[in-house]
């Protein structure tokens, strides 16, 4: 159907869109987890957990599909990334499971101290998983010591560098903001006002961290700053990002929760597109030698396999869109209350 080069690009786009979908969707429920300590009363905490109740499990399915597609389309990069970031990926797995465990246990116990403990676990795992995602993204932008075996070995100390932690913090504030927008949409009365003050704080923190990140990135990663001058698309995305952030600000001022949530979704979406655009066509930068980079061309599967998967995608994704839309319509309107599930 298509040649290998075109297919590699198509699959890069699909993989990128899946990442986007995952970050936008799981972003808000991770964000609600990050904001968890903000709730003042037991009732508020329950409302917040119930708000994400019907969604979080389905949102994680996007991560499964993203990973599956990355494996199928770019196996060499998949192998290098996951083995190279072994400890970080294990942390993600533990946190995701632990998060589910704490969500459950907290509603099963009535002892205050126990609840406090599980609340802490829920918050901690939500923050940590977001931080680690950010750290992985940060290291991908910086590049890793990729050798000619198409793998890299890097100590965890080197992976926890300042830049990556900055990206982690930036992602955490972004998700907190996104989560607060979701709560802003889903809550009423006192709690909504309270969330509103935290939305403003999250907004301020995010703005500072994001601008710092933009500024530092062009400075710290020379191979990225090269691209900035040659690729107008990057500037377009950055300005699009600015528009989304501005629209979020305006919707907040005008107290328009739906617009605010859509704007924060767009912000998350555009930022993930920005990340993909910065990387393209590289999947993993090699710090040792640029000729050792794993790109979408040399790390991808064979032409035949990519073609077949493309046919799957053509059949599958319209179906997914259709029923996801139908199902979201059934549930979107409802407001959570404290005698829901958690």
């Amino acid at each position: 159907m298509f040649d290998h080069t075109t297919l590699s690009m198509i699959w890069f786009v699909i993989t990128g869109l899946l990442l986007l979908a995952y970050l936008v969707l799981d972003g808000f429920d991770l964000g609600v987890g990050i904001l968890h300590p903000v709730a003042r009363t037991e009732e508020d905490r329950q409302i917040m957990m119930n708000a994400i109740g019907p969604f979080w499990n389905g949102n994680e399915v996007w991560l499964v599909t993203f990973a599956g597609v990355l494996f199928g389309a770019f196996p060499v990069a998949y192998a290098a990334l996951l083995s190279g970031f072994y400890i970080l990926f294990m942390l993600i797995l533990f946190c995701l499971i632990f998060r589910a465990v704490s969500l459950e246990f907290r509603s099963q116990v009535s002892n205050k101290l126990c609840r406090f403990f599980w609340d802490g676990c829920f918050w901690f795992s939500s923050v940590l998983v977001t931080m680690v995602f950010g750290i992985i993204i940060g290291n991908s932008i910086l590049g890793v010591p990729l050798s000619e075996n198409q793998t890299f070995m890097q100590s965890i100390g080197d992976q926890l560098n300042l830049y990556s932690i900055l990206i982690g913090a930036c992602l955490t504030s972004l998700f907190a903001l996104h989560g607060s927008m979701f709560l802003f949409l889903k809550t009423e009365g006192e709690l909504k006002k309270h969330i509103h003050t935290w939305t403003k704080r999250a907004f301020a923190i995010f703005l500072v961290l994001f601008l710092t990140t933009l500024f530092v990135t062009s400075d710290i990663a020379p191979r990225i700053s090269e691209q900035v001058s040659t690729r107008p698309l990057l500037w377009f995305l950055v300005s699009l990002c600015g528009v989304a952030i501005a629209s979020m600000f305006v919707s907040l001022l005008r107290d328009h929760p739906t617009c605010a949530f859509l704007s924060s979704s767009c912000t998350v979406g555009v930022i993930s597109l920005l990340f993909c655009a910065v990387m393209y066509p590289t999947l993993i930068y090699s710090r040792i030698d640029p000729s050792l980079d794993l790109t979408i061309y040399n790390a991808s599967s064979g032409e035949k396999s990519l073609n077949i998967m493309f046919i799957f995608a053509l059949i599958g994704f319209p179906l997914i869109m259709t029923y996801t839309f139908v199902i979201y319509r059934v549930f979107w309107k409802s407001k959570p209350n404290s005698n829901g599930e958690y």
Binding site: V61, V64, T65, G68, V69, F71, G72, A73, P75, Y78, S301, S305, I308, M309, F312, A313, G316, F317, I320
Partner: peptide, 9 residues
């Protein structure tokens, strides 16, 4: 990988 991707999709 392609089977796994199909499973996800």
């Amino acid at each position: 990988g392609s089977a796994l991707a199909a499973e996800g999709i």
